Amino acid sequence: MTDITVRSEQVCFGGTQGFYSHESEACGGSMNFALYQPPQVRNSGKLPLVTFLSGLTCTDENFTTKAGAQRVAAELGVMVLAPDTSPRGAGYPGEDDSYDFGTGAGFYLDATESPWSDRYRMYSYITRELPALIAERFPADMSRQGIMGHSMGGHGALTIHLKNPDTYRSVSAFSPICAPMQCPWGEKAFTGYLGGDRETWRPYDATELVKSKASGAGILIDQGAEDDFLKEQLLPEVFVEACKQAGQAVELRMQPGYDHSYYFIQTFMEDHLRHHAATLLA
């Protein structure tokens, strides 16, 4: 059985909010994650699992402490997993030089460029290694998984769902980076992690992915209308247009007055968890 370290566990809305670490083969070192287990785990067997992918600069703690997900997760009987956003302490040149590349900015892809390819393998970590650990150590029903995220994590949620629609049956996002091949954040990260050949970027761009294959799920996106990153970095209208052309069901809700912060996320978190529950608890 895979060894995990319990960093802390607290009772929360009758369930358990835990913070854990383990040695990751995909990421070449210790990785942290947070997991909320609702009170139903004591008498309901295995429960659905929703994974939340956080944005630039975040750890496993930002969402867990700021988004207010536990109350609704406890009501619904849904487990909520929050991984970290990158390996840490790899010691690569430039790893900590900026907020949008390196530490805290793994972009949920498997890097192919040296030295990043040795440890920055977040796609494999999120889709294979971490789920296998959760299935082994916790009462999660891996046949009922959903995925959601914010900003960089919204990009991750959309791309991971579109590439694995049978595994991640429900999907939603808060202010996602919708077309990373067309924005500065994405171009910087993809060039550094994947190299200069833009064709290799397409498997990690939700707008490009949906053009080739729509999923059967309905995608929910909430976007703050006053988000400072909306026009230059996020480009939800580009993704929605690609969805229309591909026949992908998507609901983009522009929320007046809201920005890019966790105040925005916590305001609509209940809607998102109920969106996932409608599929995973059906």
Rank of each mutant, 00 (worst) to 15 (best):
I4G: 04
T5V: 01
T5C: 06
V6L: 11
E9P: 01
V11E: 15
G14E: 15
E23P: 00
S24N: 10
A34M: 09
Y36Q: 06
V50Q: 09
T51E: 00
L53Y: 02
D60S: 09
D60W: 01
T64G: 08
T64D: 15
K66N: 04
A67N: 04
G68M: 00
Q70D: 08
A73N: 02
A74E: 04
G77M: 06
G77E: 12
M79R: 01
A82P: 00
A82S: 07
P83S: 03
A90M: 09
G91K: 01
G94Y: 05
G94Q: 15
E95K: 06
D97Y: 02
G102L: 10
G106W: 09
F107C: 14
Y108V: 14
E113A: 10
P115C: 10
S117N: 15
Y120C: 08
Y120Q: 13
M122T: 02
E129G: 10
E129D: 00
D141M: 05
M142W: 05
Q145S: 06
G146N: 04
I147N: 05
H150Q: 14
S151V: 11
M152V: 01
M152N: 01
G154Q: 01
G156A: 03
A157Q: 07
L158K: 06
L162F: 10
L162P: 07
Y168H: 10
Y168E: 07
R169L: 05
V171M: 06
A173R: 13
F174E: 14
S175G: 14
P176V: 14
I177L: 15
A179N: 12
A179F: 13
P180M: 10
M181I: 05
M181V: 07
Q182S: 15
G186F: 09
G186A: 14
E187A: 06
E187G: 03
A189F: 08
F190H: 11
G192E: 12
G192C: 13
G192L: 08
Y193F: 07
G196H: 10
D197E: 11
R198E: 15
E199H: 03
R202P: 00
R202Q: 09
R202W: 03
A206F: 07
L209A: 02
L209R: 02
K211F: 02
S212A: 12
S212R: 14
S212W: 08
A217M: 00
G218N: 04
L220A: 01
D222S: 04
E232Q: 15
P236W: 05
E237T: 02
F239K: 01
F239N: 13
V240A: 14
E241G: 02
E241K: 09
Q245M: 13
Q245F: 10
A249N: 11
V250S: 06
M254E: 01
G257C: 06
Y262N: 05
Y263V: 07
Y263N: 12
F264N: 08
I265W: 12
T267P: 00
E270N: 09
D271H: 10
A278D: 04
A278G: 11
L281H: 13
